[in-house]
Amino acid sequence: MIETGAVAALLAMLAIVGVAIARIRNLFGVVVLSGAYSFIMATALAALDAADVAMTEAAVGAGISTVLLLGALHLVGSLEAKPARRPAWPLAVVIFTGLLVAYGTHGLPAFSDPQSPIHRHVAPRYLEDGPRETGVPNVVTAVLASYRGYDTLGETTVVFAAGIGVIALLRRRRRKDGEGGP
């Protein structure tokens, strides 16, 4: 019960931070708030016992992204330009989509319902046979690296491709500026 309350409070904080990010014009404040957003998210995930995801969120969202965004901020200046006209039409689209998504959640199974389809497919097998078959107590690792090894290979390749893409895009630009490579 306390846990549910804590998660609800954290989600409310997330909503407040989200609105603040949308309203603030100072981009430095936006970057700091998005770091705070990630930390709150990581805390909520930790409260939901998803330690692996919480750790990733804290390191990527709050750590690396904040530094990268600050680096980008240094290049573009720190004040957001005022929009040319009032964003009534985009706002309507966003509100409509949000309501649609909220309506859609009523079709989902209740939170942590053991009878929901996702918990009745392969999850029981992983939980029951995973430690015996792989000898790895952390089921997350067993699923990620062993049962779903192909998927993780794909993910690693995606990270690799993203890195190569960034290198290919940004390195060429730097040479054109005449700054030269290292």
Partner: peptide, 19 residues
């Protein structure tokens, strides 16, 4: 791979800045 990509992206971004 993950640490390499993260660091490389950071180096490139930071290398474009002045400070």
């Amino acid at each position: 791979t993950v640490s390499g990509v993260m660091l490389k992206i950071f180096y490139i971004f930071a290398g474009r800045g002045r400070d």
